[in-house]
Design a protein around this nucleic acid. Sequence first.
DNA 1: TACAGCTACGAAACCGTTTTCGTGTTAAAA
DNA 2: TTTTAACACGAAAACGGTTTCGTAGCTGTA
Lengths: 339, 339
Amino acid sequence: MSKKINIKIIAAELGVSPSTVSKALKDSHEIGRETREKIQAFAKLYNYKPNSLALSLRNQKTMNIGVIIPQITHHFFTRVISGIESVANQKDYNLMICVSKDLHEKEVKNVEMLTNGSVDGLIVSIANETLEKGEFSHFQRLVDEDFPLVFFDRVAPNLKGDKVIVDDETGGYNAGKHLIEKGKNRLAIITTPEHVTVGVMRERGFKKALDEQNKYYNQNYVIRVEEKFDIEKQIDQLFQLKEIPDGIFAVNETYAAIAMKCTMKRGMQIPRDMAVIGFTDGVISKLTTPTMTTIAQHGYNMGNKTAELVLQRIDEKENEKLPYQTVVIQTNVVEREST
Amino acid sequence: MSKKINIKIIAAELGVSPSTVSKALKDSHEIGRETREKIQAFAKLYNYKPNSLALSLRNQKTMNIGVIIPQITHHFFTRVISGIESVANQKDYNLMICVSKDLHEKEVKNVEMLTNGSVDGLIVSIANETLEKGEFSHFQRLVDEDFPLVFFDRVAPNLKGDKVIVDDETGGYNAGKHLIEKGKNRLAIITTPEHVTVGVMRERGFKKALDEQNKYYNQNYVIRVEEKFDIEKQIDQLFQLKEIPDGIFAVNETYAAIAMKCTMKRGMQIPRDMAVIGFTDGVISKLTTPTMTTIAQHGYNMGNKTAELVLQRIDEKENEKLPYQTVVIQTNVVEREST
DNA sequence: TACAGCTACGAAACCGTTTTCGTGTTAAAA
DNA sequence: TTTTAACACGAAAACGGTTTCGTAGCTGTA
């Protein structure tokens, strides 16, 4: 790779000092007009652009925001990233995106790597393994030194810090209510293992809706999917029961789509014999047949809000610290053909 | 934000020089055992980690790879990113992912930002707008200065550089052949506008399959979707024809799923009245009812290969340059229920 | 003539790290 | 006792910028 042009080279080439070049390029009138124009012309000709590492080091400011997500192939996360991106870009920030693959060790490494000077602030959705272990010291350190840090979606309850979360409980509640309003009685839920907070909250809201209407919350109607095993088989258990449910709430889009497949495989009609509602912000729901009713998560808005919070922390002066915020993004029911 | 600990602080605190600290932390036996252990203990206690900006500047090596993609919410691209990530991480590289949103201007900015010191190499899938305009000077500059650069999927035909592409033509050919083998006669294609290379190549292969079997390539059976307008309406035109096709090849998953919806809306049976095959690496195909036959693109492999190429260029010595490579990733037909 | 003030530039420090090249002290060898 | 080598550490330069401060040279004024 041929060496990139820099200020020293320009200075040497034009017989002036580096400081003169630097000033001339910023149009400082400390530099005579003739010299200034000569330097600017030269720089333009050779397409000079200042080295961002040097700038960051000097200014103690990178104009980068780090983002750590558990999975990049999940549509929800990419929606959030889009939302973050849009706000960040408006303020000339760039994103460094890292993927923890839901592994604790990778997450720790990512955090260390990003916070050693590479970014001005960090946005994190916590890895499943970290949540399972309850091992948050890598985040605690950042909180302790007031490093700008915002969590979204998968957050740690006992950790201080700014958070942006979906109103999962109300979402679950509305899902339950919606199914009940559609005249369904035997309501099942397809959810995640218990260490995944979002699943727990959605389930809690769902149960609340059932309780309110004096519907029985049948434990046989609760499927906790372990992703390491065959998902379809686990969901299909609902259809092995003596009394098959007539309404299903799935805490994500994939589970909902699979539930719909299982239903149709049995020759049952959606929504007549079985109503299905998903919790998602994805692309699948509009493309299934029938289309899927969902609780919309508004990932893009979440990203917007998250980015705003982290930028706020970055700009914050040492002596005017705001208390930690938790922003709750509301969901809403998007009714389609599956209910 | 409280100031992060650095070598100077450690040095001052322990009454030694920065160079001594630096050497001690690398376990150099130039430093006496006692001093060494004292410094190491202190560093560990305060969780010292070297500043990566300073390291990068000093070493002229960032251990970052830049990735510019047109859209982050497209599953194919996130699959490729996963593939890149996995190879990069093995060699201790991190990713800086930027999104061009298919806009030329954003792409140019991203390229400039990343190549001004932030990354050691760059991976790009070119923005649609750039392909339309044919404006590649921002890449040409990089090629001229031998900056490690690898394109994938959306590449520029007249630009030198390493490329990783899908064998779109053969993919399209196999899609056509598959439909013919299923006994279909009136074959339609749903593709992209003509400036999108991948669409053109897939169409070319498809046409070749039809030609070989002396099937008529009916221009009414060619839909070029403009994404700024209602996609479903455009696709639905196929169903307004006097003679409705009995087989559809869609160059991506979304178009294929919409085609399936349109078919079922008409009360037609898949695959009996209409066979549909998509070109994709996505999640939708397994979740539609019926499931979708696809030409699998192997995005993850593509990412692997792309990362390998860029790492190879990064490691390359000045005097042992290899000629530019174009790696072609083969596709294969994944038969499901829609054909 | 003397001094002030302006113009136009350069020197040097700094951001955080690494590394080369001294150098003062001590111990071993001659 | 003198020379030499090893040891343990520090000074300084370098990576590529920015910025503060200093100053040479000129002009204008008293």
